Structure formats: structure tokens, C-alpha cells
Amino acid sequence: MAQDTLTLPKDFLFGFATASYQIEGSTAASNRGPSIWDTFTHKDPSPIADGSSGYIATDSFRRWKSDIEFLRSYGANSYRFSISWSRIVPNGGRNDDVNQEGIKLYRDIIEELVRVGITPCVICFQAFGDLVKHWITHNEPWCISVLGYGHGVFAPGRSSNRERSAEGDSRTEPWIVSHNLILSHAYAVKMYREEFQKAQSGAIGITLDCVWYMPYDESSAERVEAAQRALDTRLGSFADPIYKGHYSASLVASLGDRLPKFTPEEVAIVQGSSDFFGLNNYTSNLTQPGGTDEFNGKIINGFVRPDGTRLGTQAHVPWLQSYPPGFRALLNYLWKTYNEPI
């Protein structure tokens, strides 16, 4: 009986995930157009610590067959990868241009994955929907809006700390980006459900990222509230509209008029626009109030408990510590808060 409780179900997907710019290289091959990451990494001076770019990366454009063999050797039965849109629509979709060389590249990859028994997870309904049954619209939209438009450390490199938006308040831009990412996700889901899902029998959703925020001291109501505010801001800014139909009360109270509003028609499209709760989790943090960064709820994070012990095992980068109980706590929180398959 004990052994049965530790056995994963037969349909459990175990695998790996990559992002196109991080692995493909060959940024000008097969009629690929420039992406915002090309522009960002080629700035002078470079915003990348070692000055590198995705020009070569791990050369997966040429080595994808050996990459799939690596997946097989590690026992993977799933592979989530992203589409380089500048390889599919080099001119950004203008004039309905579609680069057939780009379509063929990803088609070949998907066909090989299916042939060797690895489930592909991507987004591009019409070209690949006969083989792909797991669709993800956006991966980690918080990183796009906050790191790309708030802190400026991701492409396109805009920073609300040093630039002013057209609305006159530069702090507004990341929230406008977040709002429109939610809408673009929801309308993509609407299209899939109306035009493709019945015939293709696939599932579609969005993948959000969140660390587990736990109070530095659970006996402190202020610190407990700070941890909840961090979850409402980092995770809830996307999850609450998609799964509940509205932004959280704490986010509305914090941002006021700077937070865009959904029309009733948009709420009807946004709410319920995911067949599952996609989650990326990296670490857990001990949280207390006092920070200045509104993009995570104005909190201070750390790994050291009040008694001086460390939360988990330190990883190779300073912002990561492994803490398995935190992952379990986050999963339980998601199930209780959103009641969705994760």
C-alpha cells in the first residue's frame, strides 16, 4: 500500500522545458527576422553581464535531433519549448506573411518528438494542431511585464525607474503590459476553443511563475499580510483575472487608477480562459514588509529564519534555495485559492 502511494500515475508527464532564444542560435538562418531579444542583447554597451547573445546559444537550430536524443536518454516523455515568432512571421505578422521554412523546422521537431514518444507542448494551432494537444499561450508573463518594462533587465529593456510612459507616469507601463498580456492570452484561447479545440481535442492554458512567499514570523500579523500581498501581486495579478474574473482587492488598493480596468465584455472572455493552472516554481522566500518594489508587493525577502537557521539548501545563484515544503505549500495554496488542475 505504501508503495502505491509513491507511484506516479501512468499519464504523468515528466520532461524538460526550453525557450527558443536561449537555445536555438542561427538567428538569421531560414529567413528568421530580428526579435526584441536580438535588439536588446546587441546594444552598446551590452546589458548582458558577459556580453553574450543568442547568436549561437546551444546551437539547437542545427542540433535539435541530438537534443531529442538527450531527452530520451533522461527518460523524458514531454518537452515544452517555445516558438520563435520571428522565425514564423519574420515581419511581425504584417501582410499575413508566414515563413514556411520556420514552419518546417518546428514541424520536423514535433514529428520527431511524437515518433519517439515525447509529448510536445507549444502554441501554433493551425500548423501543428494535428500533433500537439498541449498548448501554452504565454510563459511567465510577469517576467515580460516587470523585468522587461519595470526593471528593464529583460528585453525590450524599458525601465519604469528611468523612463516615462505616454500616460505621463512611467510606473503605469508595466501594468498596462500585464493587462494586455492577459487580454492577448484570453483572445488566443477564445480562438482556439471556437475554431480548433473540438477538432483537435487539445487543452490550452497559460503558465505563470511564482515563488512561495512565507511570513518571516507567523506570529506577526504584519508579516503574514506582507506574504499574502506578495502572492496577490506576483501571482494574483495574472491568476485572479483569469481564474476569478477580477484583480485582487489588495492590488486595486495599492495601484488605484494606475491599474487598467477590464470591460464587462473583456471579463467574459478573460475569466475561465485556461483549461489548467500552469505553474513554474523555483524557490521559497521568508517575507516581511519594508521593500520599495511595488512589483512584488513592497516586501523584503530572505532565506534566514529568526533563529538564524537557513530555509533550505543554497543553489549556485544567490536568489535560489531548494525548500521542498515550500513547493508543497504553494501547490496547496493554488488548489485552495483557484480550485484548478495544476
Rank of each mutant, 00 (worst) to 15 (best):
P45Q: 13
V146Y: 06
L113S: 05
L131F: 11
E69D: 13
W175F: 15
W212C: 15
P215I: 04
R62A: 12
S53E: 05
D50S: 14
T292V: 11
I269M: 07
S82V: 05
G272H: 04
D59R: 07
P264L: 07
W319R: 03
S60L: 11
Q3D: 08
W212F: 10
D11S: 15
A329N: 06
R328A: 12
S78D: 00
Y74T: 13
G168Y: 02
N296E: 05
A127S: 12
L208D: 11
G290Y: 03
T119W: 08
T27P: 02
N99I: 07
N285C: 10
T263Q: 08
G129Y: 06
W64L: 04
N332W: 04
D11E: 13
F303R: 04
S322K: 11
E266M: 10
P306W: 06
H179N: 07
A19P: 06
V177C: 01
I182L: 01
Y243G: 00
W175S: 01
A49T: 14
T7R: 15
D257V: 02
D275K: 06
E112A: 10
C121W: 07
D293M: 02
V189W: 02
I299D: 08
I206T: 04
V89M: 15
I68C: 04
S84G: 13
L105D: 01
L320A: 12
T313Y: 00
D50H: 13
L13T: 01
H134D: 08
A186K: 09
A49W: 14
Q200A: 02
W135K: 03
N31E: 09
A230I: 06
E195F: 08
P156D: 05
E167N: 14
A76F: 13
W212P: 00
P341I: 10
V146C: 11
L131Y: 06
G117Y: 04
N139W: 13
V114F: 04
N285A: 12
D96Q: 09
I206K: 01
V267F: 01
E173I: 13
N280V: 06
D217C: 04
E294D: 03
S273H: 02
Y192K: 05
F125D: 05
V189P: 08
D209K: 02
F81K: 03
R107D: 15
L6K: 13
A226E: 06
F196H: 13
G291T: 12
G236T: 04
I110F: 03
F196T: 05
A249N: 09
S254V: 00
L320V: 15
R229K: 15
L259S: 10
I204D: 07
G202T: 02
H151S: 12
G272V: 07
C210G: 09
I182H: 06
R223E: 15
K298H: 14
R62C: 04
I56D: 09
P47M: 12
H138P: 00
I118C: 09
L286C: 07
W335E: 11
D96Y: 06
A249T: 08
V89K: 14
N161Q: 09
E225M: 14
L251V: 13
D108K: 03
G290I: 01
P325Y: 04
N332T: 13
S184W: 01
